[in-house]
């Protein structure tokens, strides 16, 4: 923005400068030039200052720390150990398990979440009665604190006394070991995540849908396209940038699931199931920081590996969406 507007404004000030004293004009001129050049940076500076303080610095320090040893409960770190902590994390079978758990839960949550959110948005984009009420109510789960929703779902998915298992037993079906079976636990946690985030994503998609020019639909209707055809050939292509945003944010969120699985765990140590059935990578980082040997450095190494995994997946995401976009432009 500033770069496009700067040229005409500068012309304007030089045009009026001819009559008055040159010294005052230069000062003013300089001021306004600084204003144009500097103030955008000043406006964004607070964010970056805070980011450097609580984002970048801890991240770099984490990387630095991951090359040292540090005895449990010790006040000071020990000597340099090179890549040993990374080797330990990568060789840890719990870490590999946590990796696949994370991928599994991510797929079970993000994919249905986006599909359902888009369908919901399309339904809300019609001439419903009491539109605002419907639109607001799908955001309600988002307002509930994650800990509170974990309690609610904990009561639903409890193995012995849970609502779901009692219902299943009531109609004579076998009960599901929600906390013991790997896939069942993933599904339960994904349900929690989806319940919370679907409405939020639906609202974002809905906003994009409302910006689509209505004459596109009229034209499609005159051409004889059904509502479903309109959705696939008008709506979806028009909201592509928003879809990319939603996909990227829910990817990052999905790879960082923590609160839900931790609170879903009814075991005392909150390790994500007695056999790590649903321990995620972020939980792995947290739990590693509590163990007895080099807790912090190993957790730091795990955090960096997690960071690289997320960057990798985001990059794949980016490349795929760009390829799709190019193809559709052709």
């Amino acid at each position: 923005m500033p770069t496009t507007t700067s040229a005409p404004v500068e012309n304007a000030t030089t045009a009026t400068s001819t009559g008055a004293s040159p010294r005052r004009q230069t000062w003013r001129d300089r001021l306004s030039r600084w204003d144009l050049k500097l103030s955008p940076y000043l406006y964004v500076a607070p964010f970056f200052l805070v980011f450097i303080l609580i984002g970048l610095y801890p991240m770099l320090y984490t990387g630095y720390l991951s090359f040292f040893s540090w005895p449990a409960y010790g006040a000071d770190r020990g000597p340099w150990v090179g890549w040993e902590n990374y080797a330990h994390v990568l060789g840890d079978s719990v870490f590999r398990k946590a990796f696949w758990n994370t991928i599994g839960m991510f797929l079970l949550s993000s994919v249905p979440q986006i599909i359902v959110a888009t369908i919901l948005a399309a339904l809300l984009d019609t001439q419903l009665k009491g539109r605002t009420w419907w639109r607001m109510s799908i955001l309600l789960p988002f307002v509930v604190a994650p800990a509170a929703s974990a309690l609610i779902f904990g009561a639903i998915f409890a193995d012995k006394t849970g609502l779901l298992n009692q219902t299943l037993a009531g109609i004579g079906l076998p009960t599901v070991p929600w906390h013991a079976d790997r896939f069942a636990s993933w599904s339960a946690i994904a349900t929690m995540v989806n319940w919370r985030w679907t409405g939020y994503n639906a609202l974002i998609v809905l906003a994009a849908m409302q910006a689509i020019p209505r004459d596109l639909y009229e034209a499609a209707e005159i051409d004889g396209a059904s509502k479903v055809k309109q959705f696939f050939h008008v709506t979806l292509p028009s909201i592509r940038p928003t879809m990319i945003f939603v996909i990227v944010t829910s990817t990052i969120g999905g790879l960082q699931i923590f609160t839900e699985p931790r609170l879903f765990d009814t075991n005392l140590r909150h390790q994500g199931g007695s056999d790590f059935q649903y321990q995620t990578l972020t939980m792995y980082v947290f739990n590693t920081a509590q163990t007895s040997t080099n807790p912090y450095p190993r957790a730091a190494a795990a955090a960096w590996i997690l960071f690289l995994i997320i960057v990798g997946i985001a990059l794949v995401n980016f490349l795929v969406t760009r390829a799709v976009q190019r193809r559709s432009l052709r």
Partner: peptide, 27 residues
């Protein structure tokens, strides 16, 4: 205790013991 818990949840005791010893090695 976690190894015992796994057995309670239906894991084969031998498998659970292996997970336990592996976890201890990681320490």
């Amino acid at each position: 205790q976690q190894a015992i818990r796994r057995v309670d949840e239906g894991t084969d005791p031998e498998k659970s013991w292996a997970t336990f010893t592996e976890g201890v090695e990681g320490m």
